[in-house]
Design a protein around this nucleic acid. Structure first.
Lengths: 125, 125
DNA sequence: CTTGCCTCTCACGTCAACGTCAGGTTTTAG
DNA sequence: CTAAAACCTGACGTTGACGTGAGAGGCAAG
């Protein structure tokens, strides 16, 4: 398929797909006229890339990580890299959960009919 | 206290503190010479701002949110805002959990001896 | 007074993941 | 064969939260 269809299938913009290729996260075969052609499983690859981006990983980190998936490379270094990124995501989740709890505290007290305009101490934690 | 000490106490850069003031997230009293002075509880305020930034909120959103804490504003609009941001954080957490599961799957298969890995580095033993 | 550290206000630089416009080529539909 | 899509390669623009000097002023100590 060509780049437009891949974009449509994945919900990712054409510009983004070209950017992924520029970052070496995605490859394509060029037709004689220079147009990109992708195999069907390219959509899965794009979804994976999107998932990793959504996890807050940078292009470079994803580039480092992808061989671990593609070629099932299994070295101490690659395992360490995978675990390091997993731990980073863990930490990020913790941060978000903490922030959510603080917001929840504000919401709860602001919605409590008994409290009215009760003091909300968001700064203590 | 002056800006340098507040920066030291909170672990936030002087530049960032001035930026927060520019964004109207933080206020200060100026000395006759124009230098900023902060009360002790400014550190709590900075920590709060940092937490909300860590939750992925923008300066503007935080600016909108802060009155809900400071002045205990309790209107339908402010409650809706709070819940909207809370839901956004929820969604973000879900994304991260999904990404983490994805990485976990890769990690598990890469560490399993029966996973069909093509390359196993025995030097780690 | 002056040394030295802290602080001030501009104001341009950065970084990432694209958006967007320009100008030209390839592919497809009719 | 032609016109419209779709695609191509640059290359500059965007956004947010600061980083990083430049040049000048404030402030307690000796």
């Amino acid at each position: 398929m060509r780049i437009g269809e891949l974009a449509a299938r994945t919900g990712v913009s054409v510009r983004a797909l070209r950017y992924y290729e520029e970052q070496q996260l995605l490859t394509s075969i060029r037709s004689s006229g220079g147009q990109r052609h992708y195999p069907d499983d390219a959509a899965d690859r794009v979804h994976l890339i999107q998932t990793l981006y959504a996890a807050g990983l940078s292009s470079k980190t994803i580039l480092d990580l992808l061989p671990c998936v593609d070629a099932k490379v299994n070295t101490p270094a690659s395992r360490a890299l995978l675990r390091a990124e997993r731990d980073r995501i863990d930490q990020r989740i913790s941060e978000l959960v903490a922030a959510r709890e603080r917001l929840d505290a504000v919401i709860t007290s602001s919605e409590s009919p008994a409290s009215g305009c009760t003091h909300v101490d968001l700064a203590s934690a």
